[in-house]
Each structure stands twice: as structure tokens, then as C-alpha cells.
Design a protein around this nucleic acid. Structure first.
Lengths: 222, 222
DNA sequence: GTATTTGAAATTGTATACAAAATAGGGAAA
DNA sequence: TTTCCCTATTTTGTATACAATTTCAAATAC
């Protein structure tokens, strides 16, 4: 018997990793059966995912996985560009050796996943790096918002990104850690801004909305 | 027959204006009866309000209006201080005479409500000023987030604010409009930051969490 | 008089039933 | 063959029923 929080996490993970690709319909009975609960419980989870923009619900037509438009993709990245660098001062203030150890270990994991070509794990880890960093700031409201934006970025990256944009996002996180260790606040802020701008540019190269599932293409580059 | 969006708006308004004070329980059947629908529909609305932190739901104990802690109050204001000034450049870019007219009219309304001592309307209008301004930026994700923060600010203000903090927040919005008209971006940003810091300080004077309903006190100062 | 227990009432959690709407497929006409 | 329309099926929308839990108050014990 799974609680709805767990069902929510499982569905979110499946969406972010494109195991449920953009546009995929989410029929209530099928999901209800799959998770061994009634439609009532599933609807609650779907509504939450809809409020967080991971799925779209249309009246009388059900829910499907959101296929972010290029406009939405840019807004997500622009939001992160605006917020994440601003969190750096608080992060530096709260930064401890324990944090450093944790994040260096995470970077190692990222690099390993990258080298092995484990793309969905790579996407997951890079998002985790950013939102766990945000969580060090003293503002849980913004930290939670950034977490949501990171997950939405994963969806965006899976839809519009190339293999290169993913490693672009995960490749050099270690640089930031050295700046945080040295408490170079301004430089860390600049690093973060440039980092996110690079990611944004890597998905903005061509101007078409993705019409169909793109995870195939993404994996085919491996 | 009311749609859930309308029910949501009505409940949100009642909460923000403290017609449903912090801590007030929200029993499902009473609300269901009040709005002439079944519990199913009400639960959907309550879940949304809970995800947006206007109400708290405890398992098997139902929902009650959130009574923001001082910590939460500061985080809400800090979030706005971090975001809203950063939206100014885009707002200046998109600023038109039509916008100016609309916002000057809104300021007039605010001042009128202030003079008449219509406190809840004053609170509502000052929130509206800020989130409609944010909506002029090109980022609908951030605009929506700011809207949520403004409504949460209203709740905070009603809980912790004095009459003075309300008029502090609404009193001088006209100044910002003249800066926007003159396209003085940097000054407008500084104005916004100082403005929000003032509001934050006005609610941070004493360090106690409000233990009980404070809207009474708020009105008694009128 | 205070504290604890117990049971009835009220409230939430979950599943299901039925209504309403959309979708899909087949058949008829052009 | 293609298009259109109609019906059967599927899927969602909403209410309700029943189970599980909490709450509140009265009664008992100390």
C-alpha cells in the first residue's frame, strides 16, 4: 500500500526522466489500477502535478504529461537565472565543510553518470545539485520554488536538450564548489549566472517547438 | 452553480482578508453545503489552497487557515525583496501609456480606500498593485509566483501588521509610477527594494508569533 | 476538585456508483 | 475511396456510501 506522496514521487520521477514522455495521456483508471488504489487517490496526485505544471489537465479530456513550449522553457531558465545567483550570499554564509564534502561527492556521481552515458541519472543528479544547493539558503520558500524549477528544467532538457546540454549542466559543478569553499561570493554568483545562461543557450539553438517525443533522439546520441 | 475556480477565489479572498482568520477550521461538509456542492469538489479546492500554503491540512484532522509564523512571514517578504526589483527592467521595457493610466487609477483607489479606513480593501489593492506590475514582465512563471507571494503577504500583514504597515505599503506607489514613466530603471529597482524592506521592517518590530487572531487588534486601531 | 476513561457524535479517508462528455469505429452516402 | 454521421465504448465529473479516525463530553476514579 503506497501513500500518495510516494505515488506523486514515482510519477514525477517518471515524467522528469521521460519514462512518461510529453504528451503521454494519464488515464485515471489505468494509473489507479497500476498503483492499487482508487481513482480518488490518483486524481489528488494528478491535480498536484497539474498545479506544478508537470501535467496538463483539460476539462473532460483528462490529463497528459506537459510538453513545455519553447516560451515556457525559456521562462523556466530565466527564472532560475534571476533567482539562483541571488541565493549565493546566504549559501556562502551557511556553507560548512560538511556541505562541501556532500556536494563534492555528488559531483563525482554526476561525472561518473556522465562518463557511463547514464543520461536520465545525469539529468536527475544535475537537478539535485542545484536544488540541494538552494536548500542551504535560509529561505525555504525560494528553495522549494527552485526545486520545482529544477525539475521543470529536467523536463525541458529532455525535450529540447542535446546530450551536450546535459553534460554542459553537470560538467563543471566542481568549479562552483571551490568558489564556495573560498567564500568568493561575487565570483560564485557570476559563475552561477553564466552557468545557467549556458544551459539556456544550449536549448535555444533552433527555434522550433518539439512536435513529438524527443527522448528517443536524445538517447540515440549516446 | 459555482465552478471550483470561483469557489477557490472566494475562499482565498476570505482568507486573505481574514474573514476566515488564521487557525479557523475548514470542515468539508460545512463548506460543501455553503457552496452547494459535494465534499469531493471542496477537497479539490482545499488541496490547492494547501499546496499554496494558505491552509494547512493535517492527516485525519482536516484543514485550517494557515497562521504564518514570523519565520514564514520574513521568508515571504525576503522572497519578494529578492525577486520584485529584478523584474523592473522587463517591466520598464514593456511599460506603455496604457499601463501608466491603469496603475495611476489603481493608486487613486488605494489612497481612497486608505483615507476611508477600508482596511481589507486597502490590503487587497496593495497586493494587486504589486502582482499586476509583475505580470507586465515577460515571465509568466515569476509573475504567478509573485502573485502568490503577494497574497501570502496580505495574510502576513493581517496577522502581524499594524494599520501603519498597510498604508506604508500602499501609500507611495505613485512614486514608483513616475520612475517607470521616466524609464529610470535602476532607481525604480532601488525604490522597490527599499519599499519592500520598509514593509518587512514594519512587521518585524516585535519578536513574538501571534498566538491568537490579530485582525481584531488591527481593526481596533482604526 | 482534578484527572482519566469511555463512548457517542462529528469529521476525514477511500472506494464506488452513476451521470455527462469525449472518443473511436463502423456504416452509409457522395 | 473519402467524408460524414451515428452509435457503442471509454473516460472523466460529481455525489454518495461506508470505514477509520478524531473530538468532545459525560461519567467514573482518585
Amino acid at each position: 500500500m503506497l501513500k500518495d506522496e510516494q505515488i506523486y514521487q514515482k510519477l514525477l520521477k517518471a515524467i522528469v526522466e521521460h519514462k512518461l514522455p510529453p504528451g503521454e495521456r494519464l488515464p485515471e483508471d489505468k494509473l489507479a489500477e497500476a498503483f492499487g488504489i482508487s481513482r480518488t487517490g490518483i486524481r489528488k496526485v494528478i491535480q498536484r502535478l497539474a498545479l506544478e505544471r508537470f501535467v496538463i489537465v483539460e476539462a473532460n479530456k483528462g490529463a497528459h504529461v506537459n510538453r513545455p513550449s519553447r516560451q515556457e522553457a525559456e521562462e523556466v531558465l530565466n527564472s532560475r537565472i534571476l533567482i539562483e545567483p541571488q541565493l549565493i550570499p546566504d549559501i556562502v554564509n551557511n556553507w560548512t565543510a560538511k556541505h562541501a564534502k556532500h556536494f563534492y561527492a555528488m559531483v563525482d556521481e554526476e561525472n561518473h553518470a556522465d562518463e557511463q552515458g547514464w543520461l536520465s541519472q545525469s539529468i536527475q543528479l544535475t537537478a539535485q545539485f542545484h536544488y540541494e544547493l538552494a536548500a542551504i539558503s535560509n529561505n525555504s520558500i525560494l528553495a522549494e520554488f527552485v526545486e520545482q524549477l529544477c525539475y521543470r528544467s529536467s523536463l525541458v532538457l529532455a525535450a529540447y536538450g542535446s546530450r551536450k546540454s546535459v553534460s554542459c549542466d553537470s560538467g563543471d559543478h566542481a568549479e562552483l564548489l571551490t568558489l564556495l569553499d573560498a567564500r568568493k561570493t561575487v565570483q560564485a554568483q557570476q559563475w552561477m549566472e553564466h552557468h545557467l545562461i549556458k544551459v539556456k543557450q544550449s536549448i535555444s539553438l533552433d527555434g522550433n517547438d518539439c512536435a513529438q517525443i524527443d527522448f528517443q533522439r536524445l538517447f540515440s546520441e549516446m
